[in-house]
């Protein structure tokens, strides 16, 4: 159980790092959204589930309830993160941020 929790947490940190690198490296706003919105939500869910498993390692009823609460955060992130991404995308569309396309790249 502890090893599974540790593995999940390390994987989550890896995806967080990928998300941040994506935010820094991608060329325009829309592509940055891909890295920011999604890598982050998966990473957050992985780390949160890992912490819930770690919390269950010394088993007791109150720890079980705390783990349920931690999983509730995961469910919340799972619903809220794509909604926020969608809202920001539509706002960018409205104010007319131009997307980066392949043609703009000088050959």
């Amino acid at each position: 159980m502890l090893w599974a929790a540790g593995f999940l947490i390390v994987a989550g940190i890896f995806f967080f790092a990928v998300g941040v690198l994506g935010v820094l490296r991608f060329p325009d706003f829309y592509t940055r959204l891909h890295a920011a919105g999604k890598c982050d939500s998966l990473a957050a869910v992985l780390v949160i589930v890992g912490i819930a498993l770690y919390n269950l390692a010394d088993f007791s009823p109150s720890n079980l309830l705390v783990s349920f609460k931690i999983l509730a955060i995961a469910a919340f992130v799972f619903i809220a993160s794509p909604t926020a991404t969608h809202a920001v995308t539509e706002a960018a569309l409205i104010i007319g941020v131009e997307p980066w396309t392949k043609k703009d790249e000088p050959q």
């Binding site: 619903i79 809220a80 909604t83 969608h86 809202a87 539509e90």
Partner: peptide
Amino acid sequence: NLIIRTAVRL
């Protein structure tokens, strides 16, 4: 906005 509405409603 259907997506935001439904998510917030739930």
